[in-house]
């Protein structure tokens, strides 16, 4: 069995983002970039299945500019077998990305796609579900547990009111939540080895896939700033303020 893992390059989770002075986007120059944390969990999940013997090959794929090769190398250094870069300079939105991934999947015929549930930049939480829709495949979103059998995958999902387990016919799309696993650290020998692993580069703009964005960003702004208040000396002070100043209890 083959697993395909789409990965995205995002600004590092610990960076305080700044809006560009012309308001067209956020500052990315000299900002630390890396693999989206949910995508990293997805790679780890695929590798654990491979190590358990259920899977022969793990392919990482990304859609974007050539600089995105670094997140493929990250996946390869974790242990993925090969990478595919669907290269384009076009700015992308989830449906466009899902269409490009659909093309890759039709070419590679994996039995399972494991994707991150959302990227920490656009916070959309859409691409996996859209991909499943385009392929007509079942979807198991926000997974905290994945068990694979010959023709099904059992997915335990984290939902607002607890946990929900589904059984999906393969092929299927699964998206990862935080508690699925803890991704491994990259060792230096594995980083070196990853440099020699193959990456196919395909020009996504030349394919007949509509990736033109439908959503137009008119404005980016910071939310209203919340100012810190006062430090109190005691619990009595706190209860007094909550009762008599804020009047919330």
């Amino acid at each position: 069995m083959k697993i395909l893992v789409p990965v995205k390059r995002t600004i590092d989770a610990n960076i305080h983002v700044r809006i560009k002075s012309d308001g067209t986007g956020v500052e990315q120059e000299n900002v630390k970039m890396g693999i989206n944390p949910f995508c990293e969990i997805a790679v780890e999940a695929a590798l654990q299945m491979k190590e358990a013997g259920a899977v022969e090959e793990v392919i990482v794929v990304t859609v974007g500019q050539n600089v995105c090769e670094d997140v493929l190398r990250h996946g390869l250094a974790m242990g993925a077998d090969r990478g595919i870069l669907m290269e384009t300079d076009q700015s992308l939105q989830p449906l466009g990305i899902a269409r490009v991934l659909e093309y890759v999947i039709k070419k590679e015929s994996p039995q399972l796609v494991i994707a991150g549930k959302q990227s920490i930049d656009s916070d959309n939480n859409q691409t996996g579900q859209m991909l499943a829709a385009l392929l007509g495949w079942p979807q198991g979103t926000f997974a905290s547990k994945i068990e694979i059998t010959l023709d099904h995958v059992k997915v335990t999902r984290e939902v607002d009111k607890g946990l929900r387990t589904l059984s999906l016919q393969l092929p299927a799309v699964v998206t990862t939540d935080l508690r699925l696993n803890e991704p491994r650290y990259l060792s230096l020998p594995n980083i070196m080895k990853a440099r020699k692993k193959p990456i196919d580069i395909i020009n996504a703009s030349e394919l007949e896939i509509n990736i033109i964005p439908q959503l137009k960003t008119l404005k980016l702004e910071y939310p209203p700033k919340r100012n810190g208040g006062v430090r109190l000396a005691s619990v009595e002070d706190l209860v007094d303020k909550l009762r008599n100043e804020a009047r919330v209890i």
Binding site: P94, A98, N124, T127, Q129, M130, A133, L134, E158
Partner: peptide, 23 residues
């Protein structure tokens, strides 16, 4: 935009060939 809506609506949008607006 509960886990119910987040699971469902992107699937609906893709079937309609439109991008989805989250949250």
């Amino acid at each position: 935009s509960s886990t119910f809506g987040k699971d469902l609506m992107p699937r609906v949008a893709a079937m309609l060939n439109v991008e989805q607006l989250s949250d």
